[in-house]
Design a protein around this nucleic acid. Structure first.
Lengths: 253, 253
DNA sequence: GAAATAGTGTCTTTAAGACAGTATGTG
DNA sequence: CACATACTGTCTTAAAGACACTATTTC
């Protein structure tokens, strides 16, 4: 009836698929790396592992692993986080895919990177197991959302050398985080169940790398409808205790 | 001297690399797809090709191709755009990587997607060659930055079926575009060399899918420092002609 | 001169920033 | 009571939105 191409994937498709040769095109190693981020004492921190194999043996690297045959990218990221940092149940988001031909000296590796945000308690728990994982403080040598690689130092302030292009990767995670801060619940994910407004402000300042105005920050947060007062207050501080809030999961609108 | 692991990738690394077996881990097909976006008569549009091979033979798909051994991801995107749409010299940005195990029935394919923005003239030129490429209008069934798949229709308003997960991919491109609109030069890239303020406003409205306030839009744009008056005016319109502006490449600050 | 959009000037509303002043806990 | 931070109220400033009015072109 019509000379237009049929919207049909029927005829011949099953035969085509049965005889398809997957090696017809070049195939590549695909890795998944995870930037696990927390806010610690005014610094953004991330979790690193020490490489015990070549290449870059002895240097620090993001936890990562090769993608397996039947898992999704996000499942791979979840697996990496669980096996290397014993962390589960966190919100993961895809960051970027790195694929420079010589970024890995072994062979061409395409690395799909995810990032996750956790509160300080969970981060410290992950960093203090017997696993060879370490907490590293991120030093951002640029302002705003300029972007670029970052430096990392250990808890004693000593510079750590990062394997592969991982300094660029962490830099991109910081850039993304800064960009999402004012329209996504980034701050809440970096805090525990309940928190004071000042704690939330400090987390924002840590992410942004600059101070924010206290008055308008409070007003903006309280007006956003994302905060829910718990009725309880801080205790054990040497000044008037602040109200504790929790993140209001977008309930009624 | 020290018991700490050496920051050394020296001893044994060259031997390790020489004997490294790249097939030690699963390898995957890696594809690069490109969402070429333009603003046409109030609709966002994208360029599609008709698949002449299984799978999804006869359906519309984003221009794409398999990554080659020694090219970067961005080079692959550039190559796809040149070979399938005869478009070169446009700004490309990585969008997202799609890797669901069964998204391609042939074999597991990890697809790194880029998007590019072009003005109407270049888009029409690309869509009207002899190549089997088609202009498709994007219909966004959600508001703001909600996200989700989109529908596409041809120039006569008929719905087009998209191959693979390409409806999700185009949806993500729209979402990203909306998010970047107020802090990146998205609007300028969708226009030609010079343009009126109303044209720029219409492009913003097309991307956002909603009207914007004319007064504050003008003020904001003129105050942004990104616009440069040309001193020339529109011609051939049946009303008072407007001043033509051009995008001020961030010169002196 | 009618029609249509360009462009200017001003008023109102809203959010951000600044800051004074009061509140409430610990030592 | 000193100190430290929490919280409230108000003033100023800047940006967004609304709208009236004038300008300039084609038909």
């Amino acid at each position: 009836m019509s000379k237009k191409p049929r919207v049909s994937s029927a005829e011949g498709e099953s035969e085509f698929l049965a005889s398809y040769d997957p090696t017809r095109f070049e195939r590549f190693s695909v890795a998944v790396d995870v930037v696990l981020v927390a806010a610690l004492e005014g610094d953004l921190s991330t979790l690193l592992v020490v490489r015990d194999e070549h290449p870059y043996k002895g240097l620090h690297a993001l936890p990562g692993g090769f993608l397996k045959k039947d898992e999704t990218l996000e499942e791979a990221a979840t697996r990496v986080l669980r096996s290397k940092a014993n962390i589960a149940g966190v919100y993961l988001e895809q960051l970027y895919t790195f694929g420079e031909p010589r970024r890995d000296p072994r062979t061409r590796v395409i690395s799909v990177v995810y990032y996750a945000l956790v509160d300080e308690a969970r981060f410290r728990a992950a960093a203090t197991g017997e696993r060879p994982v370490h907490s590293a403080r991120i030093r951002v040598p640029w302002e705003g959302e300029t972007g670029g690689p970052v430096k990392v130092v250990d808890e004693k302030g000593r510079a750590l050398a990062l394997a592969f292009d991982h300094a660029d990767i962490v830099g991109m995670a910081v850039k993304r985080l800064r960009g999402k801060l004012d329209y996504a619940p980034v701050g809440f994910q970096l805090l525990g169940e309940t928190f004071t407004l000042l704690a939330l402000q400090r987390v924002h300042e840590t992410v942004l790398g600059r101070p924010v105005n206290k008055d308008s920050f409070r007003r903006r947060m309280l007006a956003s409808g994302q905060l829910e007062a718990t009725g309880r207050s801080q205790s054990g501080v040497d000044h008037r205790p602040a109200e504790l809030y929790r993140f209001a999961r977008r309930s009624a609108v």
